[in-house]
């Protein structure tokens, strides 16, 4: 008698789940892009006014970098010793530097270097971090131990010193600097991904995937990794700002990108000698570094709040 009961119950549940599944399927067909996860995230992001301002500033700066030739009023390389170290005026919005070059034009062109170095360095750092983090999370055991110990080692060296050492190996070009900047963020991303994977791995859908005999590779790339992306996206957007700042710091020390390339940090470094007579040489490029870093941080904050499932209702 009890057996029969169980059978009936199972049947009932089966029918129910089948029905439910069917319902779900129908919904999926009608689903518009407005139901997508991406749309929800964007909607939540848009509610955060400050982050939207940050995003707008970034978009404006990217457009500036793309259309630098059209925007810049002067050739950024044109040397004009007769008008050196001029204060801001109607002809030169941000004044001129020690060689009489127009600072506004140099900042406009500098956006290309500063933004792209930030994006490239964070992209390389994040991708390598994902690779190592995924290896650690996937294999576990001694692979994980080795990777984490290497992370310990890299993180015990002060960031900026490691950056300087690595930049000496690669040289002082654009890509060399990007590589040097990417190195120190690899351990952080690795740990972040591994920690996220550890918590995702415990969830029911992974168990379900195992139960229907998905291969470990499939579970890894189709189920676990996509669900670990939220913190990585946030850390990526924050990293861009940090890299732009570190790149400016390296150029300031005379190591990263150097004059005559109009990278913002290099401009600050070159203007340092004239701090007393022409402080605008330092003020304007620095303001732009601060502005772009601030914008990326704001966007990162907004994304984190939008992606955080804890804050969802």
């Amino acid at each position: 008698m009890p057996e029969l009961n169980v059978q009936a119950e199972t049947q009932e549940r089966d029918r129910h789940s089948h029905h439910h599944g069917h319902d779900h399927h129908e919904k999926a067909v009608k689903r518009s892009w407005k139901d997508s996860n991406f749309y929800g995230v964007m909607q939540r992001f848009a509610k955060n006014k400050v982050s939207v301002v940050g995003l707008i500033i970034i978009i404006l700066l990217v457009l500036t970098a793309i259309f630098a030739e059209q925007i810049a009023p002067y050739n950024y390389r044109r040397i004009d010793p007769a008008h050196a170290n001029q204060l801001p005026s109607a002809a030169h919005w941000f004044g001129t530097d020690a060689q009489g070059r127009d600072i506004f034009s140099r900042i406009v062109f500098g956006a290309r270097y500063s933004l792209s170095i930030g994006v490239i360095a964070s992209l390389v750092g994040t991708l390598l971090g994902i690779l190592f983090g995924a290896l650690a999370g996937f294999f576990g055991g001694w692979v994980e131990t080795v990777i984490l110990r290497i992370c310990d080692i890299i993180q015990s060296i002060p960031n900026i010193l490691l950056c300087i050492c690595v930049s000496q190996v690669f040289g002082s070009g654009f890509f060399a600097t990007a590589m040097a900047l990417s190195v120190y963020s690899i351990p952080g991303t690795t740990r972040l991904l591994r920690a996220t994977m550890m918590s995702v791995r415990e969830q029911e859908f992974v168990e379900a995937a195992k139960a229907i005999d998905c291969s470990p590779m499939r579970i890894m790339f189709k189920h676990i990794l996509p669900n670990c992306m939220a913190p990585l996206i946030v850390s990526f957007s924050m990293a861009i700002g940090m890299k732009i700042m570190s790149s400016a710091g390296l150029s300031f020390l005379g190591l990263g990108i150097q004059e005559p390339i109009p990278e913002w940090g290099a401009m600050i470094s070159a203007g340092r000698r004239y701090l007393r007579v022409a402080p605008h040489l330092v003020i304007f490029p620095g303001l732009f570094v601060a502005l772009v870093v601030l914008s990326f941080n704001l966007v990162g904050d907004g994304l984190r709040d939008a992606l955080d499932p804890k804050l969802r209702k």
């Binding site: 700042m245 400016a248 710091g249 330092v282 601060a290 941080n297």
Partner: peptide, 12 residues
């Protein structure tokens, strides 16, 4: 505070 480069604020 976290967005301003330290060497720049130092010069300021």
């Amino acid at each position: 505070a976290i967005s301003v480069p330290s060497f720049w604020i130092a010069m300021m």
